[in-house]
């Protein structure tokens, strides 16, 4: 019976571990998305800055 409880406990622990790992994979996907979005935002603002400078120079 004791052995039983131990096996059960190990099973529960493993279940939570694998849920954690699955969640972590989701997080990693989101992380890539965030990095990408920041990249686009920065590119946009850089472009805007360049354009503004161009306009100013033309004036």
């Amino acid at each position: 019976y004791l052995e039983d409880v131990k096996i059960q406990a190990r099973g529960q622990l493993q279940a939570v571990e694998s849920r954690y790992k699955a969640q972590k994979r989701i997080t990693q996907t989101f992380e890539l998305e965030i990095l990408d979005l920041y990249g686009r935002l920065e590119k946009d603002s850089l472009l805007k800055k360049l354009e503004d400078e161009k306009t100013e120079a033309a004036e």
């Binding site: 972590k24 965030i34 990095l35």
Partner: peptide, 11 residues
Amino acid sequence: RDVYHALQVIR
């Protein structure tokens, strides 16, 4: 560490 890293990602 997980949470710390997440905070860095979102700046």
